[in-house]
């Protein structure tokens, strides 16, 4: 095999040439790369710039604008608010006004809506947890071959339209709907229950729509768990319930937290479900924000509501990100 003889010099890759410093011959490409590198424009920097700039522009700045407009005055016109700073008679005129926030406190409608949103989101999250945990557990402990298809079944409804799934519940829960017909047919009730357009329907709708978001993170932690731990516990004499409570449950805590936040945070600001399934007296803050914006056209107040809602949610969002980040770091290690 003559070409393998190291003493024979066939064209050797750049940089591997004997004796030469390992610098590739300077082609035009190298020169361009060199210049951009000196300007601090490495490929890596360029890659970072794209998504970073996008998120700053379309995610970060919008929140600053919401903050700004929440202290502007409403006005008739397009857009329906005043400028914050204006030159009036050669002087700077500052129009800052907290009446948007003021209204939040004056009218206890908003306070009630906040509290009711928290209550509804909390109870629905609990329902998702109670229903979702056994489901996630069952999938995680199923034979490995069956886990994929079962998981698929959980995700599948998500690929069909959210709106349509809520709509399906409208037809089930209405006065002459399936549920009432069934209950009356069984003789359990004699008058149809008023479920549609009530808080109960909202609980059902949120639990139903958000259930997969609870199951997936739960499954992820339960599946990673070492099942020999349970066998070891059983071997050491723990009863199944006891080992569930002392081993499985604590170890799945990250999944419980992640799943609960994934349900709770968006549920607090939910708009579609309360407006389709809730009654006119079902107060939820997302719905009030929508009404302020689209019906009253009071953008400053809508912004104030958004800022106040965000202030509620900053804590939970930070906890959620902490858990997200922990997974990322674990992955990177």
């Amino acid at each position: 095999m003559p070409a393998q003889d190291p003493s024979q010099s066939s064209p050797v890759p750049a940089g591997a040439a004997a004796g030469l410093p390992p610098v590739a011959p300077r082609t035009l490409k190298d020169r361009v790369l060199g210049v951009t590198r000196r300007l601090g424009l490495t490929g890596r920097g360029g890659v970072i710039l794209g998504p970073y700039a996008w998120l700053v522009l379309f995610f970060f700045i919008p929140f600053l604008i919401v903050l700004k407009i929440s202290v502007a005055e409403p006005a008739v016109g397009i857009p329906p608010f005043t400028k914050l700073v204006e030159w009036v008679d050669g002087g700077l005129d500052l129009h800052i006004r907290f009446s948007g926030f003021q209204a939040l406190f004056d009218d206890d409608l908003y306070l009630l809506a906040y509290l009711n949103s928290l209550k509804i989101a909390f109870v629905s999250t609990l329902c998702c947890l109670v229903i979702g945990y056994p489901m996630a557990y069952a999938i995680a402990t199923a034979p490995e071959k069956r886990r994929g298809p079962l998981l698929m079944l959980i995700i599948l409804p998500f690929w069909t339209s959210f709106l349509i799934r809520v709509y399906a519940w409208m037809s089930i829960l209405k006065d002459e709907g399936l549920l009432n017909n069934l209950l009356m047919g069984l003789g359990l009730i004699h008058e149809p229950l008023k479920i549609l357009y009530s808080d109960l329907a909202v609980y059902i709708g949120i639990t139903y729509s958000y259930l997969p978001f609870m199951i997936l993170p739960l499954y992820a932690t339960l599946e990673k768990m070492d099942h020999t731990l349970l066998e070891a516990a059983a071997d050491l004499g723990a009863r199944p319930w006891k080992s569930f409570l002392t081993i499985t449950l604590p170890l799945s805590l990250p999944g419980i937290v992640a799943g609960s936040l994934l349900v709770f945070i968006p549920a607090v600001g939910e708009f579609v479900i309360p407006s389709l399934l809730g009654g006119s007296d079902t107060l939820m803050i997302g719905r009030e924000l929508w009404n302020l914006f689209f019906n009253s056209r009071d953008w400053p107040s809508a912004s104030a509501v958004a800022i106040a809602l965000l202030a509620f949610l900053v804590g939970p969002i930070m906890i959620f990100q902490h858990f997200q980040g922990r997974d990322q770091d674990k992955g990177a290690a």
Partner: peptide, 22 residues
């Protein structure tokens, strides 16, 4: 990392309002 994961849970009414105002 915060800006990437926040939209996963951010209530849509807030995102919608913020983007419109932008």
């Amino acid at each position: 990392a915060g800006m990437i994961s926040a939209p996963l849970v951010m209530p849509e009414v807030i995102m919608g309002l913020a983007l419109l105002l932008l």
